[in-house]
């Protein structure tokens, strides 16, 4: 893993202090390394929507996704649940593509589920929900794209000409 890292802006409106707390670079890497099962709240059935593209990517990269959708029965070959509260087994991470005001309720359900971490995608920020999750010992990342972060540390985002802000003279870990 690269030693020198600057926190990439990626249009985040968070202050440097908030970025340290809610976009902590070590937390991001810990979540990516330790999670295997990821609930995706707000996963669209349409294949060109961001949520669907991210979920498809996570499957390709070996994660098991658990779609959360109010009506659909199956997305990307996986059984859907109407809410996080309906998932009958604990997930490692809850990745959220829903408007900010819905975050506290999703967090409450995630805590009951036994999830270990909460992640909100780009532009989705709710500090109340984030603090609730952190108070219950969950890892939290706000306002970041999980696909981009996975690709950033894996070296694949770089192929897209993105500024990953990772600098290191050591060999990249396999």
């Amino acid at each position: 893993m690269a030693n020198l890292t600057c926190d990439i802006r990626l249009n985040s409106k968070l202050t440097p202090e908030q970025r340290e707390k809610y976009q902590n670079i070590q937390t991001v890497q810990d979540i990516l390394k330790s999670s295997k099962t990821i609930a995706i709240v707000g996963l669209s059935t349409e294949s060109t929507k961001a949520s669907n593209m991210v979920a498809s990517y996570l499957q390709d990269e070996g994660f098991t996704i658990v779609p959360v959708h109010p009506k659909a029965s199956e997305i990307l070959g996986e059984k859907c649940y109407p809410s996080v509260a309906d998932i009958p087994f604990p997930v490692d991470l809850v990745d959220i593509f829903r408007p900010p005001h819905e975050i506290p309720e999703i967090v409450e359900q995630s805590i009951k589920n036994g999830a270990k971490a909460i992640w909100t995608q780009l532009k989705i920020v709710n500090f109340e929900g984030a603090d609730l999750a952190q108070a219950h010992g969950l890892n939290v990342v706000l306002d970041k794209c999980i696909k981009m972060e996975h690709g950033r540390f894996g070296g694949m985002l770089h192929w897209a000409g993105m500024n990953t802000e990772l600098i290191s003279a050591k060999r990249r870990a396999v």
């Binding site: 990772l166 600098i167 003279a169």
Partner: peptide, 8 residues
């Protein structure tokens, strides 16, 4: 350095 991390 930016843009190149030596390959594994």
């Amino acid at each position: 350095h930016a843009g190149q991390i030596p390959d594994p």
